[in-house]
């Protein structure tokens, strides 16, 4: 039996994509009442974790199980791997209890990436709903780090309530930039909320991007993405420039277990990020 020591984890992981790699939790951050981020220190030779914005990892809590979680950190900071998720299931709830110094298993990165290269020279509109902001954050880091390459950048973000807004500090920082448009709306609010109330799609008509020269990236619940696509189309964005991130029951992460099949694609392998035009016909098929 081969024992997987830290020094050769990388090598084994490449050949045995089903074997998880133990990573150390560097910091556990509570984002909202039910969402949290884990900052992991990659193990192995290089202490670096290379990924493209939009990719996900299979995270394994010892003894509890494994779930796909998108990477939410800065792709340029390879020594700091960040995931953000909501504590809803057993695994994510157990993950929420992890503290600095604990160990978490990582397999990945898997899946396709947001089209940051294709978007160069164009306006970029990012539409996020709920926890869907997490997989888009690496894109924003990338866009802002390479600000000169892009036209207008707009983030349209819908959350449930003001308390559910993710990454508040980061958003504040971005809000103060003049080269970054940000619109946030919540589904319901009480008290002192001075921002927008209403669904995220209502932000689309008024955000200042050029529909003919833009790339749109959407991440959120499927129904929100469906409505968003309609609204973007209404503004004249062509569907091959709209990208969506899909979600299904991913188990292996490498397209070999069949659980995340969506028609002719496996989401873990062919997605999770798709050009909308590629899956438009699958998008509204029931129980596919």
């Amino acid at each position: 039996m081969a024992t997987m020591s830290d020094s050769k984890t990388n090598e084994i992981n490449l050949t045995e994509p089903m074997i998880t790699r133990p990573f150390r939790v560097n910091r556990a951050i509570k984002d909202t009442h039910d969402t949290f981020s884990l900052e992991l220190t990659p193990s192995g030779n290089s202490n670096k974790f290379d990924f493209a914005p939009g990719q996900f990892n299979m995270l394994y809590v010892f003894g509890v199980g494994e779930v796909p979680i998108s990477i939410s950190g800065d792709p340029a900071k390879q020594s700091k791997l960040v995931h953000t998720t909501r504590a809803v299931g057993n695994v994510t709830k157990a993950m929420n209890k992890l503290k600095a110094g604990d160990t978490l298993g990582v397999r990945g990165p898997f899946g396709t990436a947001w089209p940051v290269k294709e978007a160069e020279g164009e306006d970029v509109v990012l539409v996020a709903g709920g926890i869907g902001l997490a997989p888009l954050r690496p894109v924003i880091y990338h866009l802002l780090a390479n600000r000169g390459q892009y036209g207008k950048i707009a983030l349209l973000y819908g959350a449930r309530t003001p308390e559910d807004i993710l990454f508040q500090k980061t958003l504040e920082k971005w809000r103060s930039r003049f080269d970054f448009e940000m619109y946030i709306t919540v589904d319901r609010a009480t008290g002192n909320w001075k921002g927008n109330v209403g669904v995220v799609t209502q932000l689309i008509p008024r955000s200042p991007f050029d529909p003919l020269n833009c790339v749109a990236m959407i991440c959120g619940p499927e129904i929100m993405m469906r409505f968003t696509v309609l609204e973007l189309e209404k503004r004249g964005v062509t569907t091959n420039k709209i990208y969506v991130s899909m979600e299904r029951n991913m188990k292996c992460g490498i397209g070999l277990c069949g659980h995340c099949q969506l028609g002719r694609t496996f989401i873990c392998k062919d997605g999770a990020v798709y050009p909308y035009s590629q899956i438009a016909d699958l998008f509204t098929k029931r129980e596919l």
Partner: peptide, 8 residues
Amino acid sequence: SAFLNGRK
């Protein structure tokens, strides 16, 4: 063991 370990 699932209940003790907090898993499904």
